Computed example of a mutant assay.
Amino acid sequence: MTVSDKREMLIFAEQRRGRVHPVAFELLGKAIELSGNRDLTVSAVLLGKGVRGEAQELIYYGAKKVYLFDDPSFYNYDPFLYKANLVALARKINPYAILFGSTHIGRSLAPRVAADLQTGLTADCTDLSIDEDGTFIQTRPAFTGNILAHIKTKTTPSMSTVRYKVMQRASRDENREGVVVNMTPLSSDASWKVICEHIIEGIGLADAEVIVSGGRGLKRPEDFKMLEELAKLLGGVVGSSRPLVDEGWIGKEHQVGFSGNTVKPKLYIACGISGSPQHLAGMRDSEIIIAINLDPSAPIFRYADIGIIGDIYEVVPRFIEILQSVLGSDL
């Protein structure tokens, strides 16, 4: 597929509670970069309720065209309803590529759209490019993150889900101009609807400002409860290194690393994590890193702002005790 075949690079602008998810601005940043001098128009599609203001924000962030589906039925994510409308739009405009964020919604929606369009989908991309002949190249980790695969999609349109916080966010400029295209929503005959928002949003690891992660220093799966208690006191969430996910101690949605989630929290506490390159690739850009490990030679200490050489089973409970004393034991 070449650029001349398809003129629009379409961004799915995911929204939650009427606000566009920041991953959309990262997708716009990459799309603007790729469009360059090529014959491509950067566009976005937004489905939601009362989101006309957000459509204008997408223009400020670089979208030349925003396809707006503004209807109460789109306030909560319904995979069947969203899919039906996106597929209809894609068939109408025949885009060069469609990009989604690798969020819980994006990972749920993109495969459904790809299946209906009978096109390929490359998931969890860490980079995108266009080669000299106009072919779309998608880069993603393969073989459990040991290599990078560079994938060319032969079917059209090319479709990708892109990891959050791995691409440069587009700059906001209120002088940018674009057009909002009001779309007529299609109804869905699907009876099943997702109404439990906590199921849709999931853990929110990539959005968390505080993450407490566990590694091989944990002795039992139940010991994640200790980390959960610390995370709760700090208003954060629990993460994990890959070995514990592979062991089935915790779900893959908690995995931090090259083959898991890329995170940039304000505070990252690594508990019993040695610091493999795979794990460091997913968290080394955190604002503050606290590492707790018995091994003074652990690689994680080279990246830590604060290093504590000690037993996590002594240090973490002490943290919890201090926080409970300061914040109140009822928190």
Rank of each mutant, 00 (worst) to 15 (best):
E26Y: 04
K30H: 04
F25H: 13
N76Y: 08
Y82I: 04
T119L: 05
A84S: 12
G120L: 07
D71L: 00
G120N: 09
I59C: 10
Y82F: 05
N94Q: 15
E54D: 11
L121F: 12
K83I: 12
K30N: 02
L99N: 03
A90M: 02
L81T: 12
L99C: 10
F100Y: 14
L34E: 11
L89D: 09
Y96Q: 08
G106Q: 10
K49I: 12
G36K: 07
L40H: 11
S102V: 13
A31K: 11
Y82Q: 06
A88H: 08
Y96M: 10
Q56F: 14
P22R: 08
S73L: 05
K49P: 00
R107F: 13
A55Y: 13
G53V: 12
K65N: 15
L46D: 05
L28G: 06
R107C: 13
S102H: 08
L34A: 15
F25I: 07
V45G: 00
F25E: 06
G106I: 01
L34R: 05
A88P: 15
G120K: 15
R112H: 04
G101W: 07
A88Q: 15
G29K: 03
D78V: 08
D70C: 01
I93C: 01
Y75P: 08
P95V: 01
A115T: 07
